[in-house]
Design a binder for these strands. Structure first.
Lengths: 188, 188
DNA sequence: ACCTGAACACCGTTCAAGT
DNA sequence: ACCTGAACACCGTTCAAGT
């Protein structure tokens, strides 16, 4: 089939992503990805160096999507304090809607390349802007380094079922957020 | 070899754990574990239902070890505020000393059984005691649900290299801890 | 009872052979 | 240039055969 190279690249990534969303990245075989786009597994090596490179392409797509989502939500509110809260809830909502993808991009044995690290840093940077208006530009970077770990840690634990015992997960999340914002403001 | 069943169980778990520490749990094959204890892979099925069960045994051992570590460190200081800080630093030190094990026990696609969840909850519970003296018994549980996610999130991000850009990781950790404790106290 | 080799159904990856 | 079947070296797991 005479298909443009770019197109089929995107097709493969999309198919692989869909499989990851359904089964988790560990369960996705190259054979499954290949048949999903109507080719055989060895042909994938014409487009991607190996399995890791294919997963890295998904990873990049995910972080671009998350960054765009955060930007959209940041534009929705004006008040700095409310903005941070809105971003936090949007991030959590995305993770809960795509738990397998979220697990993949934070998998420890998954090495994001230079690009992946930059994409992650950009997402954190978006958090930094409303924080700057809240605690001052100088303190925004350290503040993001408090908030981002909490967000990620809470979500990992939630998705792993660590909060299964004890009620009120939504309340716990809101409470954690409020606690950290209080602490950040008090320190000013 | 006429070895007591309990002993050989422990031997297998120890060998598997050592391999996980060295290579990461994804790289560890049952064949490697078996030859490490002088048997063949199929024989492992006499002791463990499958690969997941063997990994779950390591998981349980790890959480017992972490709980013991936290208990030891809690006993070392009397002041509640200092105790929380000491526990947090001890937890981080353990994770950085055993990065592959830390990644394994928090792997999302790794399902801890009932026992595993209880072991995790116990470790969090040890954090709760010094927090109770700090913010009151009633607020200790929600407080632990703020602190534990931050600790875990920070470590995952640190081990994944997310803080590679920008200096002062130790300072960032101490700052995050201080911020959260400030926020928790202010809310009282 | 416990261990084993052989076998099964899978992997990711390579490559010579096709078009 | 791109795709393919066949092959390679691995997996986890099962099981009949040995002791």
């Amino acid at each position: 089939m005479p298909v443009c190279a770019k197109t089929i690249d995107a097709e493969i990534v999309a198919a692989a992503r869909a499989l990851v969303e359904k089964c988790g990245h560990e369960e996705v075989s190259l054979a499954a990805v290949a048949t999903a786009v109507g080719i055989r597994a060895p042909s994938l090596y014409n487009r991607f160096a190996d399995r890791a490179a294919l997963l890295a392409a998904i990873d990049l797509e995910v972080w671009r999507e998350v960054s765009a989502l955060l930007r959209d939500n940041a534009a929705r509110t004006k008040k700095p304090g409310a903005q941070v809260t809105v971003l936090a809830h949007a991030y959590r909502a995305w993770a809960k809607a795509h738990p397998r993808l979220y697990a993949m991009v934070w998998d420890a044995r998954f090495d994001p390349g230079e690009l992946g690290l930059k994409a992650r840093a950009e997402a954190v940077g978006i958090l930094q802007q409303p924080l700057a208006e809240l605690v001052g530009a100088r303190r925004a970077f350290p503040a993001a380094r408090v908030l981002a770990p909490f967000l990620h840690g809470f979500l990992t634990m939630e998705l792993a079922g660590a909060f299964r015992m004890g009620p009120g997960i939504d309340e716990a999340f809101a409470h954690g957020l409020a606690t950290i914002l209080t602490g950040l403001k008090k320190e000013k």
